[in-house]
Design a protein around this nucleic acid. Structure first.
Lengths: 137, 137
DNA sequence: CACTAAACGCAATTGAGTTGCGTTTATAAT
DNA sequence: ATTATAAACGCAACTCAATTGCGTTTAGTG
């Protein structure tokens, strides 16, 4: 992703442009699957942010709806860039029980569900599929 | 749930019957919503198991398909009794953003999804709805 | 150029869950 | 009924992802 676009994204979210955050967004964009803080740190290497700063940046991105965050069963958060602008998820996720990788199933849309008739107000929806990914099956 | 039934459940799962595990199963059955270890400990009070023993019992129940385990967004596991016998979930869960409570939406069935055409083998499915429960809306 | 709020890094802390290990108990064989 | 043994248990110590405190740096506006 080009720098100009990243500047625009950060500015629109009311956040400052810094080299570290730009690298973070670019990396998430390139990888296009949910990543842990550890994976991000490894991917950014020396050019990247401190562990704490990564969490803080991701938190503000989450608030702004720039990324989504998932828990895939191991109590480790994974973050993926998602331009959808809402804090909810717009597609299901696939979790491979063999390699542990998580993917965004962007081609699948979430079903429209209304359970308001029973008094529930549904604001967000998360759908996870677990099994074997194409590489492991 | 009567003692005889609990004995049968544990025996069928290849587990020993102990007062602690019986109390644990009975409590999960009565409460019929996903509970944290802390909630279980509070619920069982003096008559219950040690924290470690609760986790170990729940782990073996999970293996046996007696309970299911969910992560509802706060990195804290919740366990619910579920006689369905499979390790996957058979219904969606609702997470209230106001009171934090989690409920099993046993009346809603999960949609049948097949993504095998793209090389994915789907073994389990988890669906979470987030929003406001009837008490909070 | 100066000022201020946001961003950053380091060290220390939190807390859910786990591990090690010695003791107790359920259950099946004798 | 007694014994053997594998499972279940409790305590203390540990792990590790994530958070907090706090002082420093930097972006971006006036």
């Amino acid at each position: 992703m080009e720098e100009k676009k990243i500047k625009e994204i950060l500015h629109q979210a009311g956040l400052k442009y810094t080299p570290g955050r730009a690298a973070l967004i670019a990396f998430l964009w390139e990888t296009s699957r949910p990543l842990t803080q550890e994976e991000i740190s490894l991917g950014l290497k020396g050019s990247g942010l401190n562990k704490v700063s990564i969490y803080r940046a991701l938190d503000s991105f989450l608030q702004a709806g720039l990324v989504h965050r998932i828990e895939s069963g191991d109590r480790v958060w994974k973050f993926a860039f998602c331009g959808c602008g809402s804090r909810g998820h717009c597609h299901p996720h696939f979790i491979c029980r063999s390699c542990g990788k998580v993917e965004c199933l962007t081609k699948m849309h979430l079903p429209e569900v209304a359970a308001a008739d029973q008094g529930y107000v549904i604001e967000e929806q998360e759908v996870y599929f677990k099994g074997l990914c194409p590489g492991c099956s």
